[in-house]
Design a protein around this nucleic acid. Structure first.
Lengths: 73, 73
DNA sequence: TTATTTTTGCCGTTATAACAGTAAAATACA
DNA sequence: TGTATTTTACTGTTATAACGGCAAAAATAA
């Protein structure tokens, strides 16, 4: 799953520059550049913040997931 | 989404110690401990490797996602 | 029970990711 | 066209995440 392309595509669709997206995500512009260029050695937290701004949800799936007790807030 | 609990649950189900999981994921055991304790300032790449070992898939969803041209291998 | 093995929890050091700065490139506007 | 503004590409420095090491705790065996 190419996260760089996903972010680039959504950023373009939102009409955001890297710097603007970075500001909204509370991070530096360089990391946006890095991610869009295929770097995956970036903080997970930063990925999450960027995804939030771009209205992208992150989901985890597995055959066992439904067995986890989940307390809904 | 509590990634720490997800990993802890699947690790237990797989009968793996942190050290064993770390070895399989090609990382150190400390980061497993950190993640399970709620730390999100960890490398995205490491999350991916751990998820792979535990057979958990990572998916991104958005209202625009289907508009991306995806070349299937 | 005691001894042995395994696992967990955490700290200090080292490698590296994030950042600001800046030049180049692109875009906008007159 | 020229000038201003915006965006991109990249580098070096600094903050910090990843790691190994070790003690404590837990599990397992005898």
């Amino acid at each position: 799953m190419n996260i760089g392309k996903i972010i680039k595509f959504h950023r373009d669709m939102a009409g955001l520059s890297r710097e603007k997206l970075a500001d909204l995500a509370g991070t530096g512009k360089t990391v946006i550049y890095d991610i869009e260029h295929g770097k995956t050695t970036v903080r997970y937290e930063i990925i999450l913040r960027i995804m939030k701004v771009l209205n992208i949800s992150v989901n985890f799936q597995s055959p066992l997931m439904h067995l986890m007790e989940e307390k809904d807030g």
